[in-house]
Write a protein that binds this DNA or RNA. Structure first.
Length: 296
DNA sequence: CTCGATCCCTGGACGC
DNA sequence: TGCGTCCAGGGATCGA
């Protein structure tokens, strides 16, 4: 499932392979994941992909202005979210269409940039100017670009659980379930710990481990759990370094205790019950006792 | 402000 | 082999 490292991998691949290419035409299949499909098609046709960037879990295909735009739409972009199963890859026009191919952009050099997404949890949108700026403003800082102090400001004082905060794209952008669990395991922080209750050293460790995990995962071209592939069709290798995610019942790499799975913030959360002890919840247990006493 | 529930969608795993 | 069922999960939305 594409999170920050996987999206970075794909964005770099596309930057290498399709930057500078002109989009000659656009063919759409199912369009329920595209904002305003008609406009999408007309605006993309004839535009050139200037460069490809990552923004959180989004890819931003920056587009050059149409010749007739006369200076308008200089900051137009194709926004792509891969959802769970999306793939955006350049292919030869002679290649057979994979099942669930929903967008085909014919490029100037004869290849095709194809979007394939069985579950259609992804999103595509043509955005420019104000709409693009507004869209991007909804998200927090990139975890690889933020300082420890900026991280601290986002977490301290928050009553939400740390796992929920890490997954919240308005708190920081790009982290998903895998890298949240991996960095919490490394930092020995329980996923249900409240943000406000993280001690300064824990916060500093979590910040550092999150960056380390993300950087290493990028270097290994992401995690391939089921079907993630880079733009050349090669799986990532970071899944071989997972210490918590998907390891329910298997021994912790540090202490051999069986990894447990619980649901936090509506997501499967894998953690070591020994290394990441459940936070003592003084107030809750007291409340429970007093409630029991009252009902009796 | 934060929570859980629900929906979107398909493929894969599993039980019979 | 072929059903039915459950689960995976990012994000939007809604009600508590």
């Amino acid at each position: 499932m594409p999170e920050l490292p996987e999206v970075e991998t794909v964005a770099r691949g596309l930057q290498r392979s399709v930057a500078g290419q002109r989009i000659l035409n656009v063919a759409l299949g199912k369009t329920d994941f595209i904002d305003n499909p008609d406009r999408f098609e007309s605006e993309l046709t004839g535009r050139t992909i200037a460069r490809v960037e990552r923004y959180g879990k989004f890819m931003l295909l920056r587009l050059t202005a149409k010749p007739e735009a006369c200076g308008r739409d200089l900051d137009a972009a194709l926004l792509v979210h891969l959802g769970m199963t999306g793939a955006l890859t350049p292919q030869l026009s002679s290649d057979a269409h994979a099942k669930h191919t929903h967008v085909v952009m014919r490029l100037g050099d004869g290849r095709e940039l194809r979007y394939v997404d069985p579950r259609r949890f992804g999103r595509m949108a043509y955005l420019s100017g104000k709409a693009l700026a507004e869209e991007l403003r909804r998200f927090g800082l990139d975890p690889l670009e933020m300082s420890l102090e900026q991280f601290r400001v986002q977490i301290h004082g928050r009553k939400a659980r740390i796992k929920a905060l890490l997954l919240d794209q308005s708190v920081l952008r790009g982290v998903g379930n895998i890298y949240a669990d991996e960095s919490l395991w490394k930092a020995k922080v329980h996923p249900a710990q409240l943000g406000a209750r993280l001690k300064p050293p824990q916060l500093a460790t979590l910040y550092a481990e999150l960056q380390k995990v993300l950087k290493k995962a990028i270097a290994l071209r992401g995690s391939s759990i089921s079907d993630f592939r880079d733009t050349e069709g090669i799986p990532g290798e970071y899944q071989q370094h997972h210490r918590a995610y998907g390891r329910e019942g298997k021994p912790c790499f540090r202490c051999k205790t069986a990894i447990r799975r619980i649901v936090v913030a509506g997501r499967s959360s894998y953690f070591c019950p020994h290394c990441q002890p459940r936070p003592a919840r003084r107030s809750t247990s007291r409340k429970r006792k007093s409630e029991k006493a009252r009902t009796k």
